[in-house]
Design a binder for these strands. Structure first.
Lengths: 111, 111
DNA sequence: CCTTTATATACCTTGACACGTATATGCTCT
DNA sequence: AGAGCATATACGTGTCAAGGTATATAAAGG
């Protein structure tokens, strides 16, 4: 999963698809990427469940599937807790600084 | 950035550090990973700004830095919008189904 | 000082993967 | 049926990164 989105071209493709579905040719043109490259990355993305495709005559329309990226999001959850805890700690620290300094200069930090 | 967290051992190290700072040896033991491997991954993580270290006698204590993972989180933002839009669409769809069926059977989906 | 402990680095080998080029598959339209 | 377009796949090549083993650096303690 993480290996998949480690590849810059694949991330570019995913970012393209977030707005709407696209054919291979459209992706190829917008990203200025040789067609076999696009097809191969799409294959990887499809097999990993990041995208799915439907047939439209000779074209294939690719669109995003949410699940894998949601798992990435889920993996990030503990870290989000970590850094928001840090912001809290920083705020408490600043508040304490505030307590200490407000006796000297009579201004107060806004909340 | 994405390349960094694509490596499973590095993700394991990051997950360890989310609870509290750890020395190289502690990481080595908890993850059952040879020491040079740990050191090399920590170097990569440090140079990419995912962790920082302080010296404690012969030990080095490594702790998380939030910024890089926050950037990953930021990259995910558009996709979060994408899939919550989809949940919304699904809900609207179910509500419409509800409208259509409630005339036949007199029960109503709970909100 | 010398040994032990903790961590970092050097070197080598191996495997995976991304790319380019060429070619195959498949659909459409005349 | 044949030409042309859209997409997929096959193959050969180069690069890079991870792992293992050995060794270097450095601090602690007797």
């Amino acid at each position: 999963m993480f290996e998949i989105i480690a590849e810059p071209n694949r991330r570019a493709i995913l970012s393209l698809l977030v707005s709407s579905q696209q054919s291979v040719g459209e992706i190829e043109r917008q990203l200025r990427m040789p067609q076999p490259t696009v097809s191969k990355h799409l294959r990887v993305l499809r097999e990993a469940g990041f995208v799915e495709s439907t047939v439209d005559a000779q074209r294939r329309l690719y669109r995003l599937k949410p699940e894998p990226l949601q798992e990435v999001d889920a993996w990030l959850a503990p870290f989000r807790r970590f850094w928001s805890a840090h912001v809290d700690a920083l705020e408490r620290h600043l508040d304490r600084m505030d307590q200490l300094t407000q006796t000297k200069r009579k201004t107060r930090r806004r909340r």
